[in-house]
Amino acid sequence: MLLRTITRDRRDLLGEGLMWSARQNAVYWTDILGQRVNRLLLDSDQVDSWKMPGTIGWVVEREDAPGFVAGLDRRIVTLTLDPLTIGTLADPDRAGNRMNDAKADAAGRIWFGTMSMDGAQPTGAFYRLDADGAVARVDDGYRIANGPAISPDGRTLFHTDSGLRTVYRFAIGNDGSLGDREIFIRFEDDWGDPDGMTLDADGGLWIACWGAGCVMRFTPEGRRDRSITLPTSQVSNCIFAGERLDMMFVTSASDGVNDSQAGALFEVDPGCIGTPTRRYHG
């Protein structure tokens, strides 16, 4: 099975926020603690990196405007990289928190979570950013809000509290409202903590397992049926990429980890096809 470490001149302190750009044939990801946005060009394997003025949790491409919307510190900002420009859209969260992870859905909304800086207190929340710029807090009380993923039909949202080692499932209404929070998966002791997530075309949920050094796939019924081992323990996020969406990239963290592969970006063969990455419509 393919396992490739992407060659570059640095390692991430906390790799996260993976995003596939079909427009650029590129994979973007963030280094939250290293305060960087990174880009891998698939045509050439060139890796570029931009220093940010704070912790950066995620970037999402814009549909009808240049650049990205991003989660910077606790703010939502517009972001371009060449040249670097940053403009504040909203500052919705509590003092002492930061952005952690996000995904856009087919309607062009962004779903994002927040957490306290140390992840020890349940001050994090889950939000929806609409195309008109309105922000709604849709759930609350998270220690480490993480890994939103939206089902291929757009009707179900998965979200996790890594601190509680629990993956939740919500029904999504046509207006963007969420149904009741349901427990979908409780992680077993040797599975690590659920971190970033993505879905394949068959509705399988792929989860980066922080502390367990792997990504796992769960069936639409919540049964674990596949695992890919990585050569470092703190695996943090995963995304499908490539023209056929048959490639998978995985981030990791080096902060507090003493091994040569910690903080690397990996490519693995998932053996399946992913779902398209959506853009923000604002």
Rank of each mutant, 00 (worst) to 15 (best):
G173H: 09
G163L: 04
F170M: 11
G176S: 08
T156E: 13
S162A: 13
Y168E: 06
A149F: 13
T166Y: 05
V167H: 01
G154Q: 03
I150P: 14
D161F: 00
L164G: 03
T156M: 08
G176F: 09
G163E: 02
S177P: 01
P148W: 07
Y168Q: 00
S177H: 14
R165S: 14
P148A: 11
N174R: 09
P148I: 12
R169M: 06
A171I: 02
S151C: 09
T160H: 02
D175Q: 11
R165D: 14
P148K: 12
F158K: 04
G163T: 03
R165N: 15
D153E: 14
L157Y: 00
I172H: 03
L164D: 14
H159F: 09
R169W: 03
R155C: 09
S151T: 10
G176H: 12
L157V: 06
G176A: 05
S177R: 14
S151D: 12
G173N: 13
A171P: 00
G163C: 03
D161C: 10
A149T: 10
H159P: 01
L178M: 11
F170S: 09
T156D: 04
F158Q: 08
G163M: 03
S177G: 13
A149V: 14
F158W: 12
H159T: 02
F158R: 05
R155V: 08
G154E: 10
L164S: 15
H159C: 02
I172D: 07
D153S: 07
I172R: 02
R169E: 06
T156K: 04
F158A: 06
I172W: 02
G154C: 12
S162Q: 08
S177W: 03
S162P: 10
A149G: 15
A171L: 06
R165I: 11
G173L: 09
A171E: 13
P152V: 03
R169N: 06
G163I: 07
L178C: 07
D153H: 04
D175L: 12
F158C: 11
G173R: 07
P152I: 13
I172V: 14
L178W: 02
D161I: 03
A171T: 15
T156G: 12
F170Q: 12
D153K: 06
A171W: 00
G154L: 11
L178S: 05
D175M: 03
P152E: 08
S162W: 04
G154I: 06
P152G: 06
L157A: 11
S162F: 09
R165G: 12
V167T: 05
T156L: 05
D153G: 00
S151N: 09
